[in-house]
Nucleic acid binder design. Structure first.
Lengths: 253, 253
DNA sequence: ACCTGAACACCGTTCAAGT
DNA sequence: ACCTGAACACCGTTCAAGT
């Protein structure tokens, strides 16, 4: 294996290494499986396993090459035989953590209900693995697990009457909203009554001349949880998608 | 000033420093303005100015205490007189960069058109400052500039017929979507034809048995830009909001 | 009261040297 | 062919010492 080198092999004429997560990078991955398929000791899977465990137990700050190596009982330098750099490791790790993206809801329901079910499942998965959510950037959407999720969404939305392009845009929007809402609430534990109290105090003490509505409705606003926010946005998106199907022209206004 | 110390002064009984960006942290900020109001040389504003310039010109990786200090012509240690740590600096920086969030659209238009106008403006601002977008986490939503944006959104949505709670949830959802869509497309330059070509190649070369729709519609999917995605999601959200106003009951299903 | 120099304990990454 | 030890050039943060 790796006997003849095709012109686009990344080890040859590598004027610019593609950034991990790019389409070019994902394409290049499959041309060099030999680098990862080692029969001895350390495997890429083992590296990603300990990395994932580290991320879940000790958080994103502890996800260092040194800690991963320690968890595996090897040197940091050894990791670089399986991964080009840390960014690449993160890209692979995040895609691997996205395998739930394509699980299928039970029962025989409306496309919108299926989408809502999957969206909630995905969000709950990210909430259980906040480290993954904070590492999620756009470029991971091209990995195998992300693509499985895209395939599933396309089935749903094309089945509902969307064109392929609109279906893809809708699926992306939904994914963006889910990931964004988890990230956007990472530091804010909505279930923590202390946090809610502080928010109420903050809203109340603002300048009523500049921020009248915030001061006026301080108590109500402080009670809105990230769950509430998510449900409202999800409902709005799906309702909007339904309207877009019935009248696709409203995309152009 | 700072003569009598109220029981919640963070310098006293500081068993746990609040994390920057938390409601508790924003509240505490106003109790110690003396630390920041120095009449000599270095000011917090100057620190944030050079930090912002650094972020815009050289990106998030170059936003180090050393580089900021160098830009100011002082030692790294001096920065810690104006900022407790780097996280705090980032929180202040991001809120400052969010001042556009509250600019008002021209003309006398529909609430939905106003919201769309502001959303596009906000997105374009973030696209011009990708460093800011990548630093945006949820906890910055409580800063003065963010709150000005919330105030403006509340005006819009309450004026349209939402309850304060629903208005807040809707505004948050919209902000989440905007920020998420910028972040989610940070590495992927949709205007780059190279990237689009690679995506097409990637989609085409997937396993047609596992990902039939992706392979089948590869060319169409590769052409969907992040602009398209954003517009579809924005339209869906606003359409959904309109439906929610007309029939608030559909929030509970 | 303010700022500095120098150190501390960390990073990611590289590479000659071992086996 | 594989892994290691040791180094390199960076981080954020602290603190005694200067002025």
């Amino acid at each position: 294996m790796a006997s003849e080198l095709p012109p686009h092999d990344p080890r040859k004429n590598q004027r610019a290494e593609p950034r991990p997560g790019t389409a070019a990078w994902w394409l290049a991955q499959e041309n060099e499986p030999a680098r990862r398929r080692r029969r001895r000791s350390l495997t890429l899977d083992a590296v990603l396993d300990t990395a994932m465990a580290l991320l879940d137990t000790r958080g994103v700050a502890a996800l260092t090459m040194r800690n991963i190596a320690e968890g595996l009982g090897c040197t940091q330098a050894s990791l670089y035989r399986h991964v080009r750099n840390r960014e690449e490791l993160v890209t692979l790790l995040v895609d691997r953590a996205l395998s739930v993206a394509s699980s299928v809801p039970p029962g025989d329901t409306d496309w919108a209900e299926k989408a809502a079910w999957s969206a909630r499942l995905f969000r709950e998965h990210l909430l259980r693995h906040p480290g993954v959510a904070s590492l999620l950037r756009g470029t991971e959407r091209l990995g195998p697990n992300s693509l499985a999720g895209v395939q599933y969404s396309l089935e749903l939305f094309i089945g509902a009457g969307f064109s392929p392009r609109l279906a893809y845009a809708a699926a992306s929007s939904l994914a963006t909203f889910i990931i964004g809402s988890v990230n956007f609430n990472l530091g804010l534990d909505s279930s923590d009554p202390e946090e809610s109290r502080h928010r109420r105090l903050l809203y109340r003490s603002r300048d009523a001349a500049a921020l009248p509505l915030i001061v006026q409705h301080a108590d109500a606003l402080a009670e809105v949880s990230s769950d509430d926010e998510f449900e409202v946005g999800l409902k709005a998106l799906l309702t909007g998608f339904r309207a877009l199907i019935q009248n696709p022209d409203i995309t152009h206004d």
